[in-house]
């Protein structure tokens, strides 16, 4: 089996926005929306001992996706490779899934009248390439791979590094692993 996932080395991220623009270019994301983002923590500490972190985010490709659960027409589903995908030919654009995502990773694509979100660049991965955000990243913040392949870089990282996942209490079992440093 294949279970695609991503690890994110937050410490590397410098918020250059390469991933955000690459995603927009690859996936024709309409203006005003974005499939991925780089969050920024509030400034810590007092001048001059201050700190800030940059936290990339996108669809967490949950094992138990709420978005799929609430879809009234079955347009969203988790595929055999562990990626949650939207069938654009089926989606009716009710946006229930957009509201059901604890990560706010979905948006309404007003140009197509459907829900939209990261799908780990399905076509690229099927063509043997990395997702656009992963390949373009200057700081090698992102590692993409198959959790079910014990030899993959991501499996090694998840096994060896201290990682955390976001909003686990939502119960969706996200598959983006943030590497603590």
């Amino acid at each position: 089996m294949t279970r695609y996932a991503m690890a994110i080395r937050t410490a590397n991220c410098v918020r250059c926005m390469g991933c955000v623009v690459a995603c927009r270019a690859e996936n024709d994301v309409p203006e005003g929306s974005s499939r991925n983002w780089i969050g920024q923590t509030e400034l810590r500490g007092r001048f001059p001992h201050v700190g800030v972190d940059f936290v990339p985010g996108q669809c967490m490709q949950c094992e138990e996706p709420h978005c799929a659960r609430v879809c009234p027409v079955g347009a969203t589903s988790k595929d055999e490779d562990g990626v949650v995908r939207i069938d654009r030919d089926v989606c009716i654009g009710c946006r229930y899934c957009v509201l059901a995502c604890p990560y706010d990773a979905r948006f309404a694509n007003h140009e197509l009248g459907v829900a939209d979100k990261c799908d780990f660049c399905t076509d690229r991965v099927r063509a043997g390439r990395e997702p656009a955000c992963v390949q373009t990243c200057p700081s090698r913040t992102r590692v993409f791979g198959d959790l079910d392949d014990p030899d993959s870089e991501i499996s090694t990282l998840v096994a060896s590094e201290r990682t955390h996942r976001k909003k686990l209490e939502a119960g969706t079992e996200p598959k983006i692993f943030y590497i603590d440093s």
Binding site: T10, S34, W37, Q40, T41, E42, G57
Partner: peptide, 12 residues
Amino acid sequence: LPVSSRIEGGLR
């Protein structure tokens, strides 16, 4: 902030 850069509550 645009959708692509949000304020996160914290690292975890």
